[in-house]
Design a protein around this nucleic acid. Structure first.
Lengths: 246, 246
DNA sequence: TTTGACATCGAACATTTGTTCGTGTACAAT
DNA sequence: ATTGTACACGAACAAATGTTCGATGTCAAA
């Protein structure tokens, strides 16, 4: 089942989690075969493949390339979070402080700047120190490994106007503050002429912009380049608390 | 120069010291050859001999008998003596412990039982001790105050078949395990006749069940009561990590 | 449809690492 | 001095662990 980049991502996280737990429990790191057994992969090369990915992202370190010598970097601990019911008393390394500190960073409080409505620009404060009245707690593990909390903000969707983006009334959308996106990334886009904000996958083609709704049954929207569009942020996650009724 | 039991004693201590330092420095234990190099003994069997002595005295543990799997027992640490700054570390650690604990209480690990596909029943294990492949971290604040983590489980959506429920390919849906829902709550519903799983707002009317898609532009589905429908769980939240493209 | 990048697998292979064994040396007790 | 035990050495061996390689399947772009 390849290309399930989501599944792989989870497996990568699971590996880190296992590395931490195993080390906690046994006092030494596991072998790649033990890792494979844990994540239900019995190809050692596949585990190596994962391990390389993790090392590329500096989540682990195995510069030694010896047996049982995989180390989890602080970034790795941060990604997963620290499991407190493990006995930490035995562990008394200098990196303990890092680990404990990062455990507190498991939960990111993301500022909710307001409500997003199709017919209005995003309510983004120019002042970066703007203190929002509400925040939303989000597990750090929901985000990519390179994400930083400072760049993120959230908006609550009001109305059904984002339905083509598969986003409901009441959903909370988490954005990353940026003014450009790569082709194929979902962005909040302000279209000057139409005076609307919309959430679409964004493609910059030769002569036009193409906005692709998340709902695959819907048509792409073509916008000539002379029209003014502005990218307000990249959509990184959507959180929906399902209520009763509707 | 044998029989210098004094010299041996010193070497044994040196081994323990080295074990501790090496572990501190590298994050994993050394090999017997590395130990030998450290104590100027290049006979692996001799190191083994020492190691056996240390294990007899319960100063170290290598019950695993695997590579790089030597652990220093508390008695071993005691033998060498604690460095004073360790106590400071422990102390600081205690200070942080509360924060860690509360941070983790606020983060629930929800088991991901598998993939939900329209044409198949939910992959819910009968065995409650079933160990899921993966878990997803979710901020506790996403749920109501009466929610308990034990009742919750998650599934990853595969395919576009849940689009009418405003749920995308790749989304993670969090359910509460229950076999009935109140009118107007969204549930995972297995329809026997059609052999499908669907996510809809559920209404039990006088003569029929009414299934209302989350997408308000879509029609309700009416199912006569004679048909067999089974509620697999209540949808409490949807989490979407927005990927590139689509 | 073809192509290429990515994800996956398992087996063969190479290296590291631990264990065993035969031998040697010193020294205290006989 | 002889002998037994504790200490010591290094080579050969066995087990573990990591790496490489060819093959396959999938998906998206060309």
């Amino acid at each position: 089942m390849p290309r399930t980049s989501n599944a792989m991502d989870r497996r990568l996280k699971k590996i880190i989690q296992f590395l931490i737990e195993y080390q906690e429990k046994n006092g030494y790191p596991p072998t790649i075969r033990e890792i494979g057994r844990e994540i239900n992969v019995n190809s050692t090369s596949q585990v190596t493949y994962y391990l390389n990915k993790l090392e590329e992202d500096s989540l682990i370190d195995r510069s030694g390339h010896l047996s049982r010598s995989i180390r989890v970097n602080p970034a790795g601990y941060e990604l997963i979070g620290f499991n407190p019911d493990e006995d930490i008393v035995v562990e008394k390394h200098e990196n303990l402080l890092d680990r404990v500190a990062s455990a507190v960073e498991n939960l990111w409080k993301i500022p909710v700047y307001g409500v997003i409505v199709a017919s209005e620009p995003l309510p983004m404060p120019d002042d970066p120190t703007f203190a929002p009245d509400t925040t939303i707690d989000v597990a750090r593990s929901l985000f990519g490994i390179n994400e930083k909390p400072g760049n993120l903000f959230a908006l609550e969707v009001s109305g059904d106007s984002m339905i083509d983006a598969m986003i409901n009334d009441g959903d909370t959308v988490i954005f990353k503050r940026q003014e450009t996106v790569n082709n194929g990334e979902m962005a909040a886009i302000w279209i000057d002429d139409d005076n609307t904000t919309t959430l679409k996958y964004f493609y910059r083609e030769d002569d036009y912009y193409r906005l692709k709704p998340a709902n695959p049954t819907m048509q792409d929207i073509i916008i000539p380049k002379r029209k003014n569009v502005r990218i307000m942020g990249k959509v990184v996650a959507v959180v929906r608390q399902v209520q009763s009724a509707a």
